Every structure is written in structure tokens, then in C-alpha cells.
Simulated assay, not measured.
Amino acid sequence: MTTANPRAAFFDAEAAAPWAAAPYGAEHAPKLERFFARTGPLAGRTLLEPGCGTGRLTEILARAVGEEGAVHACDISPRMCAAAMERVADLPQATVSLAAMERLPLAPGCVDLVVCHQVFPHYEDKAAALACMARALRPGGALLVMHFRERAAINDVHRKAGTVVEHDMLPDLETMDALLTGTGLRRIYFADDDTLGYLLHAVK
């Protein structure tokens, strides 16, 4: 199967790579612990996970929201979507769509939390992406942007990639704040270090 979108084709080729497909290891536990400290209890809540990749976090989120909650996940890579669908096949509260976030048929104000895990640099129009996330969030809802590495390391890897992602940069904090403000979101927490990686928490 040929993927016409060059960005989707890139991630198709990476779908089996360890960074995308391997189960989380012990080194990820403290990073996930910090993440869940920011989300608070998730049981019964409705989540949006754009750019879900192979569904490593999707499965964890789906188990956390339980049968009374819902996780709407999506990705533009057919192979990554297929892997994610397989991971959550026994979790009816999780749906995985082969689609860009902007094309999901979500009603305004229908989700409690948006989770962008290792995907934010890859949005070509970050302002438009954030506007879509903000529209989906209910008043008081939250956005969490998480990476397992710090911003400088992420940008360095992408810069040196020599592929379609070589210009996919995670913005500096001043730029992120401006983007958030422009879509009605407000940052309430930020951390970026070489031990626990990058985590930004904003609210609507």
C-alpha cells in the first residue's frame, strides 16, 4: 500500500522502530508518573489523543478512563494506526481513526483532556492545530504536551534527520505561550529537562 502524504509515509516506515513500537520501559516510568500527576484521576473522562502513533500511550489512557470514559485517538500513518488499533482491540472505550486531528468529527466542547505525546513538532500549522484542540475542549478542560526528551534534544534529532521531519521543531516557551493565548488556552505548568523530558500543561 502506497501512502501519498510524504509525512504519513515517513511515519509508516518508522512504525516498527523501537522508539515508536517498543513497550515503555523502566526509564519511562517516572516520566509517565509526572504526566499522570498533572492529569489527575481519569476514570470516566473523555480524552483526545491526536498523533497517537502505535498506541503505546493510547492503551494506558484507555485503561485509565475505564469503560465509563472514552479515548478518541488518531494518526495520519496507516501502519501506526493499524498497530494502535491492535493494541486497543479489547478496549471498546478507545477508538483509533486514520485521520488528521482536524478531520475528526468532534463536537465543540466534547473532551476533557487533549494529550499530545511526542507529536507537537510535527504539526505543520501549529496555531491551527491548537485552535482545533481548544475547540474540542470543554471549558476548564486541559491540554498536555509531553515528550520523553527535552526540547533541545528533540529539535536536534529532527534537524539532523535529513528527512521530511527536519524542520519539525518544538517551539520555545515564549512562542508556545503566544500560540496558546491565541487559541484561548493558558499555561499553568511547564518543565523541560534532560531527566524527565518536556511537559507543558495548559487549561481552557
Rank of each mutant, 00 (worst) to 15 (best):
P50W: 02
R45H: 05
F35Q: 12
E67R: 14
A153V: 04
A43D: 02
Y189R: 11
R38T: 11
A13Y: 00
A191V: 09
G140H: 03
L98H: 11
T183N: 15
T3Q: 13
L57Q: 06
D12S: 03
Q93R: 12
I188H: 07
H167G: 12
R187Y: 04
E174D: 14
D112A: 15
D12W: 00
D168H: 07
D168I: 01
R186N: 04
V203N: 04
Y123H: 10
L61V: 08
R63H: 14
L143Y: 03
A152W: 00
L170H: 06
F10W: 14
A89I: 01
V165M: 10
L32M: 13
N155F: 00
M133A: 12
V96D: 11
H158D: 03
R87H: 04
P108H: 06
A20M: 05
D156K: 14
R45V: 09
L179H: 08
L32G: 11
L200D: 13
I60V: 13
V157P: 01
T183Y: 01
A4S: 14
R56L: 08
H28S: 11
D90N: 08
H117K: 05
G66E: 01
V164I: 05
P105G: 09
A22W: 00
A13F: 01
R149K: 10
Q93P: 13
E14G: 07
M80A: 10
E14R: 15
A89Q: 08
A134T: 00
I76M: 13
A26K: 13
T46D: 11
T183S: 12
L106Q: 10
G25C: 06
E27A: 15
N5W: 02
R103M: 08
A94E: 07
G51Q: 04
G184S: 15
F148T: 07
A99M: 07
A4D: 15
A84C: 12
A99P: 13
G40M: 13
K160W: 01
A21P: 05
A83L: 13
P23R: 03
W19H: 10
V71P: 07
A22S: 10
G40D: 07
Y24T: 05
T195V: 11
R79Y: 00
A15H: 13
A17D: 06
H167S: 04
L137R: 10
D12C: 03
H167Q: 07
D12N: 06
L143K: 09
F120R: 10
V88T: 08
L173I: 07
E166L: 01
G51C: 05
D156Y: 00
L57H: 08
A89F: 01
G44Q: 02
L91T: 05
L173G: 09
A43T: 01
L61S: 11
A15E: 06
R103W: 00
H201E: 11
V71K: 11
A128F: 04
E68V: 05
V114P: 10
L104R: 05
D156W: 01
A107H: 07
Q93Y: 03
C110S: 15
R151Q: 06
R34A: 15
